[in-house]
Amino acid sequence: MKGMIQLLKNKGYKQTSLSVQKVNYVVRVYRKVGFEVIDESDKKDYANCL
């Protein structure tokens, strides 16, 4: 994950976002690498941004 984020930065991306279900354990992984919840699109999903 960190490698992909670095690749995107190297290619000039200023922002990266994704959507994940709240019950998915990977939410913790995304937070550890710097993603933050910016929106809750419905009762089941988070929109995350780095």
Score class of each variant (00 low, 15 high):
Asn10Arg: 11
Ser41Thr: 15
Phe35Ser: 00
Arg31Pro: 04
Ser17Ala: 12
Tyr13Trp: 06
Tyr30Asn: 00
Val20Phe: 01
Gln15Ser: 14
Lys9Phe: 07
Gly12Asp: 04
Val37Asp: 01
Ser19Cys: 11
Asp42Val: 14
Asp39Arg: 04
Lys44Ser: 15
Asp39Asn: 07
Glu40Ala: 03
Gly12Arg: 02
Cys49Lys: 11
Ile5Val: 02
Lys9Trp: 06
Leu7Cys: 15
Ser19His: 08
Ser17Arg: 14
Phe35Gly: 04
Tyr25Phe: 09
Ile5Arg: 00
Lys32Gly: 01
Val20Leu: 06
Leu18Met: 02
Lys2Trp: 05
Val27Ser: 02
Lys11Cys: 12
Asp39Phe: 04
Ala47Glu: 14
Tyr13Ala: 14
Ala47Arg: 13
Leu7Pro: 10
Ser19Met: 14
Val27Ile: 06
Asn48Tyr: 10
Lys44Pro: 09
Ile5Phe: 00
Lys2Asn: 15
Leu18Val: 04
Lys2Met: 09
Gly12Gln: 01
Val29Ala: 07
Met4Ile: 11
Gly3Met: 09
Arg31Val: 03
Gly12Lys: 00
Leu18Phe: 06
Thr16Leu: 06
Ile38Pro: 10
Lys32Ile: 05
Val20Ala: 02
Val37Trp: 03
Lys2Phe: 07
Lys43Cys: 13
Asp39Gly: 03
Leu8Arg: 03
Gly34Cys: 04
Ile38Gly: 05
Val26Asp: 08
Asn24Leu: 03
Asn48Ile: 09
Asn10His: 08
Lys14Ile: 09
Gln21Ala: 15
Lys2Leu: 10
Val29Leu: 10
Leu7Trp: 10
Tyr30Met: 01
Lys14Tyr: 03
Val29Gly: 01
Glu40Ser: 06
Tyr46Trp: 05
Leu8Ala: 07
Val20Met: 05
Ile38Trp: 06
Gln15Lys: 15
Lys14Val: 10
Gln21Thr: 15
Leu50Lys: 04
Asn48Cys: 11
Lys22Trp: 01
Ala47His: 13
Asp39Glu: 02
Tyr46Phe: 07
Tyr13Thr: 13
Asp45Lys: 11
Gly34His: 02
Asn24Thr: 10
Asn48Met: 11
Lys32Val: 06
Gln6Ile: 07
Ser19Val: 14
Ser19Pro: 11
Lys14Asn: 10
Ile38His: 09
Asp42Ile: 08
Arg28Tyr: 07
Thr16Lys: 04
Glu40Gly: 07
Val29Gln: 05
Gly3Val: 09
Glu40Tyr: 02
Lys2Ala: 12
Cys49Trp: 08
Leu8Phe: 05
Lys11Ser: 13
Val37Glu: 00
Thr16His: 03
Ala47Tyr: 10
Gly3Glu: 08
Ile5Gly: 00
